[in-house]
Each structure stands twice: as C-alpha cells, then as structure tokens.
C-alpha cells in the first residue's frame, strides 16, 4: 500500500470516527425526539398518569405545603393510578378509555426527556426529588395536571432574591400557575431565602443534581411547564415585573410564550462556567 492510499484511509477513518462520535452523542436528539411541538400542543391529553413515565416514577410522599395543594387537584383515582404492569384487560365498555389511556401513555413516552446537560422547549424534565422547607417533597410527576412556573434559584444570588420577592407579590394574580422555586442549596442554607423574600410555601431544596442534569450554569433559570409536564418556555436571568406579567399572562391564557434568552442579571453557579 503506497503513501497516498494510507493517507486516504486515515482521512476516511478520521472522518468516520468524528461523525460517528457526534451521531452517538446526539442519538437521543436525532432519533428520539419524535413528537412535534404542534401535536403536543394540540393533543387533548390531560393529566398523564404517573405510570406513563418511562423512568421509575418516584411516588410523592407529600402531605403538606404546595405539593399537597398540587395533589389536591388530582382525583383519588389519579393519585392511586396503577403502574403499567398491573394494568388489567379492559371491559368492553371501557375499551375506548383504555385506548385513550394507552394513547396518552404513548404520547407521553414519546416526548423527549431533558437531561445530559441540556433542556429545551418541548421536552419534559427528567425525574427528580426536591424537598420543601416544610418537609414536603416534589417530583416530576407531581408537576402534571397544572401549569407550573419552575425557577431554579440560589439563596446567594441577589437576582433570585429580587425575583422571588416580586413573584411573591404578584403570584396571586395568576392562580392557575403553581410556582416552584427550586434551590440548588441544601435546606439549612436555603432557609434564609424564605426569610428574605417572605416566600416559604413554594421553595424547595436539593435541585443541584437537577440543575446539573439540565446544564444550568447560572440562576435564576426559569421554565414554564404545562399541564402535561412539558417545558414550554425557558428564560435565563432575572426578569422585571412587566416581562413577568407578560409571560405569566400569556402562559395562563394558553398562548405561545416567546422564546427569548436573557442572560443579563444572572449569577453563575459556583463551580460552573457560564
């Protein structure tokens, strides 16, 4: 084999190696995301059952605080939804609803799951477990059934403090949206945030792993999550009241929220590079 052939083989192999590496790393995005945003928007799939999640669902043990308020919105049947394994053959009269449930599960399982360092509109959050200041817990499945304003915050971030104070004042104007403030710090370090902002019911702790999994490098990091648990919009950095009212109003009315990146007034998380 002469030098030219060796060169050609090396070039071909090098190219194949890089493209294969990229394809491997992007396989989830390239081949896994099969639900178009429009269909996810228009499909009348109500609260997806807990059993629909492809990952092992962590059952919520929450009995108080906002998580319990969220659970209150579910019927007892929904709360005690059987897992896929325990599903029984449907009676003839119930066949249609069983089909609907299967369709809902299929739809839900086709929605791409965020993680591996990124999150985008149209995806749903990976499973997580947060603990509230009152000891209540919150996981991915408890976000379903209502609209959620999910903000990853840090108690040491001045922008987060301002944002929480503002939201504490205006959240009553948007009763259909449940706020969740997920702190990346543990409980004892997060408690001062409640004292500073007057907000305590909606603050949760232990979001560091979730933030890492979503590739969040700074706070506040805001996500609007719809009733199906699908992220509809992402905003990075502190928002002022008019912007907040604009996006919350649109989200509450079920309108499209513009996707605008805003990294100003943003605090980098320790140990990360923004």
């Amino acid at each position: 084999m002469n030098l030219a052939k060796i060169k050609a083989v090396l070039a071909g192999l090098g190219y194949l190696a890089i493209v294969s590496l990229a394809a491997y790393n992007l396989r989830g995005e390239l081949f896994g995301s099969s639900v178009p945003l429009a269909s996810a928007n228009s499909t009348p799939v109500a609260t997806a059952p807990v059993a629909a999640t492809p990952e092992p669902a962590v059952q919520s043990a929450s009995n108080s605080g906002s998580a319990s308020a969220q659970n209150d919105q579910k019927t007892p049947q929904q709360a005690s939804q059987p897992t896929l394994k325990t599903e029984k053959p449907a009676a003839p009269g119930k066949q249609a609803s069983a089909q609907e449930k299967t369709s809902a599960r299929t739809q839900q399982s086709l929605v791409p799951v965020a993680g591996n360092g990124s999150v985008a509109a149209g995806e749903r959050l990976p499973n997580f477990l947060l603990t509230g200041l009152n000891g209540n817990t919150l996981n991915e499945s408890t976000l379903r059934g209502h609209k959620t304003l999910f903000i990853i915050v840090s108690p040491t971030c001045p922008h987060c403090q301002k944002e929480l104070k503002l939201l504490h004042e205006i959240q009553n104007d948007y009763p259909s949206i449940e706020p969740v403030f997920a702190s990346v710090f543990p409980l004892n370090e997060t408690r001062p945030l409640a004292d500073m902002t007057g907000e305590s019911d909606h603050i949760y702790t232990g979001a560091r792993d979730l933030a890492t999994s979503l590739g969040v490098t700074g706070v506040p990091f805001l996500m609007l999550i719809d009733e199906k648990g699908i992220v509809r919009a992402i905003r990075k950095g502190e928002l002022q009241e008019p912007d907040f009212r604009d996006i919350l109003g649109r989200f509450a009315r079920g309108e499209q929220v513009p996707q605008v990146s805003q990294l100003r007034n943003w605090t980098s998380l320790p140990g990360d590079q923004a």
Binding site: N25, P36, S261
Partner: peptide, 24 residues
C-alpha cells in the same frame, strides 16, 4: 462539538434561528 453534543445543540437553540425540530 461531537463530544459536547447536547451543549452544542443548546447553543444553536439559544441563537433562535433554526426551528426547534431542525436543531438536532
């Protein structure tokens, strides 16, 4: 870019030029 695929795609999304479905 190949090794940090998710980060790269997030950067493309942040530019808000390509439609979401075309980003990957």
């Amino acid at each position: 870019h190949g090794m940090h695929g998710a980060k790269f795609l997030q950067s493309i999304r942040d530019y808000q030029i390509a439609p979401g479905s075309l980003v990957p």
